[in-house]
Design a protein around this nucleic acid. Structure first.
Lengths: 249, 249
DNA sequence: CGCCTGTTTGAGAAGACTCAAAACGGGTGG
DNA sequence: CCACCCGTTTTGAGTCTTCTCAAACAGGCG
């Protein structure tokens, strides 16, 4: 009755879902919302009682600091379950902004609770993905805390590339970055000026090529070796999950 | 039959658990392990199929970078469920090291799966805590990415203090930091030398007082205002959770 | 008492930041 | 179709924070 949700496709990468499970997911999602690029979907500190599933496009979550600065925390792509801070609080912990034109669908907290009750295997899978999210966050922490500008940017580019590939399917080598250098800086903890110089330096060293906002990674394997980048989304363990509910059917 | 787990006490802060829920938790934990200060409980890259519940003492999780550096990702206190990266992978994503003498108990992935199946409300609560963990991580990212040495250290101290208070109960004002300045630096992304100078500077400014490794925060309210610190563990929303299973009983 | 680890201090170097201005590019209105 | 305008990118010069290297100092333990 409804278009298949990007969330079920995402979960299906890790596990063959039952019909019941798919239905439970698709049923839980309501009200698709179009979010044009640049629009704020959820504001830090605002009240929330719903999560969102990204169906199309990408967004980022960010925090604003008292000191005036901004930190971009994470980019979100189709299949991601976002706004999860509303699971733990009634106020949004951070701001969600559309990077490109997006379509997201709402998934209310209460419906999530129903899924947890009726589909324990899905609950476990969602928990595993939250754990993966945590580790991805830890990677970024290590990148920003302990590496220099070049390595931070290289890691960011590899991360974005890996995530875009999931959606795009094929092997992409170059991609459009609809981010300003200010945005990039806010993501990796650098000034826009220094981002600019560093990108220039990376180009000079032959690590990347640029034309406008299109970026090509010249030698990906080499860059991965250089940064030690690990794609945390490639696989997720599912061996421990309970049996699906409707096994009898 | 078994000592009440620190995990159920933790969850009980947010929600009154049923007998069944408490039993399910306590039953799932096996084999208490004593971990002396400094010992590595789990090594990055090593195989794992179990989580741990911290019962006593504290630990930290860290990553080692190719470049030789180390990033301490998070400190763990009684009631924390740790090693959660094993939920998503068979290999540990990071290293767990005891900061003080600890007691932890094992909670196998499979038993976690059983809890998810039998006690959906607990599953939801664990998911909420993972979401809270994510936001706490985001806070650290913003701190390290966008603030200077003094603010980073101030935030770290406030964070540790807030977490210690939960365990200690009463109002603590000063506390022992069983961390070397190297450790502190690895946590906030600074060199040990710079940590030393910055702590000195903070003392000179009257923000903290030190004697040995004991630290006293002189004016906590002021420091909280200065850093914009938020304790993410104070409350967790529970309104969306499904009803407990054994409601009929 | 000496050793070892961790802390403190010094001096110089490097990376990243600020302020400022110029160049670029895409979009709008004349 | 062109001129203008705005946000973004690029470049320059100088400063500041943090790092590196190095050595002295302190404290606990065998």
């Amino acid at each position: 009755m409804m278009r298949r949700s990007a969330l079920s496709s995402r979960l299906e990468r890790y596990l063959q879902l039952t019909e019941d499970e798919r239905d439970a997911l698709d049923w839980a999602e309501r009200r698709e919302v179009r979010v044009p690029a640049g629009m704020v979907l959820m504001e830090q500190g605002g009240g929330v009682d719903t999560l969102f599933v990204v169906q199309q496009g990408w967004l980022h979550s960010s925090t604003n600091l008292k000191s005036g600065g901004r930190q971009i925390l994470r980019f979100h792509y189709p299949g991601d379950l976002i706004g999860t801070s509303s699971i733990a609080w009634a106020q949004a912990a951070n701001t969600l902004t559309a990077v490109s034109d997006c379509i997201v669908s709402e998934l209310s907290k209460v419906n999530l609770g129903r899924i947890f009750k009726a589909q324990p295997r899905l609950a476990g899978l969602l928990y595993a993905m939250a754990a993966a999210e945590n580790v991805a966050m830890a990677d970024r922490l290590a990148s920003i805390g302990r590496t220099d500008a070049i390595e931070r940017l290289a890691t960011l580019l590899l991360d974005i590339l890996a995530r875009l590939r999931v959606t795009a399917g094929g092997v992409i080598e170059s991609f459009d970055l609809p981010l300003t250098q200010k945005d990039i800086g806010d993501a990796v903890g650098l000034t826009k000026v220094h981002v600019n110089r560093t990108l220039g330096e990376m180009e000079r060293r032959g690590m990347i090529e640029r034309s406008g906002r299109r970026i090509r990674i010249v030698n990906e394997a080499e860059l991965i070796a250089f940064t030690g980048f690990v794609d945390r989304y490639a696989t997720v363990a599912t061996d421990w999950l309970p049996q699906p509910t409707a096994l009898a059917a």
